[in-house]
Amino acid sequence: MTPAAVLAATPMSTGEMWVFIPLGILALVGALGMVAARNAVHSALFLVLTMLCLGVFYIVQSGPFLGVAQIIVYTGAIMMLFLFVLMLVGRDASDSLIETLRGQRVAAILLGVGFAGLVCVGLGRALAGTTAKGLAEANSAHGGNVQGLASLLFTRYVFAFEVTSALLITAAVGAMLLAHIERRKGERPTQPEQMRARFAPGNYPAPKAGPGVYATSDSVATAGLLPDGTLAARSIPEILPPRELTSSETAPKGTDR
């Protein structure tokens, strides 16, 4: 019998209690933090905290396999996927403080409190006085939690298991379809096309000149000088002086011969 199995006997042992109280508080803090954090990355990190706590709870409640899976699959894979997407979308995409739906926030909180209250009252009344059997017996029947889960999974729940595999495949293919941007052959410019575009009138084929370096200023906002002494507009970023090429600049210079 593993120590975890011993802990699962009812009621909570003192050790379990000391695990539950701080981690439970931490999990709540993580959950609240996730909802409250304005920055989506912070939200994700708060969620990771909560999930880790839950993983520990699983282990404490005689479910080492689920606990480990929670930590590896959720916090490791899924939450990383979240962070990955967050980075793609732009982590600055934080919520504005202005609520667009009138009364939504207040109503949501009231509803939440009411819902939680109802469920807690219901749970309290329903489960008062029940005794937990503990999983010691079930886990030891097959020689351990993982073996017990495996024997159930591949016997009674084998059909659901197979269906789940189909679901996973479908989800993977679906995600690929959704995320994939298809480029047809014709849409992609060929090398000769790219070269022609580079030397086409209106485009400057050579590398752009760097900004000017002067005794008074070496800012990127100061344009460099051309051999004829005029300022090279192309040497500073486009956003600074929004201007177009003049006709003399777009005229062929004999380089394309």
């Binding site: 909570m12 539950f20 439970g24 709870f57 409640q61 008062a128």
Partner: peptide, 10 residues
Amino acid sequence: TLTPEWYLLL
């Protein structure tokens, strides 16, 4: 003492 119901409340 805490019972496992506390997990449910959490």
